[in-house]
């Protein structure tokens, strides 16, 4: 066969996966919809900062507002606290819910699979992409909040929830740990959304199902009679990053939350795998 000589040497398994992941990331971070979502979420800390700057100086403000007005780092914490229960999960759900269903909807899934991307590899790359989007989103929000905080409020020692004071450097480290924690929480949600995404060919269906799940769990969490259920629900765990503002940091609780995230990831990724590797692609 004359054409065979032109064939390049195939690369190793890891570099092949890495190339597909790069392609996936380029797609995600070039897609206008995703960029708009990131921009909107990054604007939230700026808005909160400006509002606190205008209102917070009027004496009798409450604890968090007064602390934010008093220290630039606290804006990051407040912003995450505002965005983590709903807005950030929705943004992650949009990207992760689109993962398989979106490709199926446009028909590109059949071409990716005959390329052949490999079902397991495609699923892994899609999930990693959603996880990295969650991390990038958290970093974007945190960075926007940090910069806004530095511009609007004084920098200096940070007061923890427990009333202890730590240095700015340690505060920054703790904010970094919070970003990691929140990104892990979003990774757990991404697993749920990707799993739902393998069950439908309509991306909006997978996204909507994930958002409904988030809202339903938030409601369940608010019902006192269901307190026993709360520790197993993702939203309960998401806001657990406030533990990093306590002294001593309740490490056992943070590990428990990370374990819970891990359990969600293992369960829903295996569900997605079982479904996707056996699915007839008819779109």
């Amino acid at each position: 066969m004359s054409t065979a000589e032109a064939l390049v040497l195939p690369a190793t398994r890891t570099s092949v996966t890495w190339r597909l992941l790069r392609s996936e990331l380029a797609l995600t971070f070039r897609r206008p919809r995703n960029l708009v979502m990131m921009a909107i979420l990054a604007a939230v800390p700026i808005i909160i900062g400006v509002v606190i700057r205008l209102v917070g100086s009027e004496g009798d403000a409450g604890g968090m507002i007064a602390q934010t007005a008093g220290n630039s780092l606290m804006l990051t914490v407040v912003s995450l606290f505002v965005l983590v229960p709903l807005l950030m999960p929705v943004a992650v759900a949009v990207v992760a819910g689109d993962a398989i269903a979106g490709e199926a909807g446009t028909g590109t899934l059949r071409y990716l699979l005959t390329a052949p991307a490999g079902r397991g590899r495609l699923l892994a790359v899609k999930y990693l992409n959603a996880v990295l989007f969650g991390l990038a989103l958290t970093l974007t929000v945190a960075t926007a909040a940090l910069l806004t905080g530095l511009v609007l409020f004084p920098a200096g020692d940070v007061t923890l929830l427990s009333g202890t004071t730590i240095s700015l450097g340690e505060g920054l480290l703790r904010v970094l740990a919070m970003v990691g924690y929140v990104a892990a929480g979003m990774a757990a949600l991404a697993a749920v959304a990707v799993a739902l995404s393998t069950f439908t060919e309509v991306a909006i269906g997978a996204i909507a199902a994930t958002v409904v799940l988030i809202i339903v769990t938030q409601v369940l969490r608010a019902i006192p009679q269901l307190d026993w259920l709360a520790p197993y629900l993702l939203p309960t765990r998401w806001t657990g990053f406030d533990g990093l503002l306590r002294d001593p940091v309740p490490m056992s609780e943070i590990w428990q939350s990370l374990l819970a995230f891990g359990a969600y990831i293992v369960l829903f990724c295996s569900l997605a795998w079982a479904r996707f590797t056996g699915k007839d692609i008819t779109s």
């Binding site: 604890g63 968090m64 914490v77 606290f81 929830l161 427990s162 009333g163 806001t239 406030d242 533990g243 503002l245 306590r246 309740p250």
Partner: peptide
């Protein structure tokens, strides 16, 4: 310490 969501009493 009585931890609350984003608050604490000591």
């Amino acid at each position: 310490a009585l931890p609350g969501e984003m608050s604490e009493k000591n």
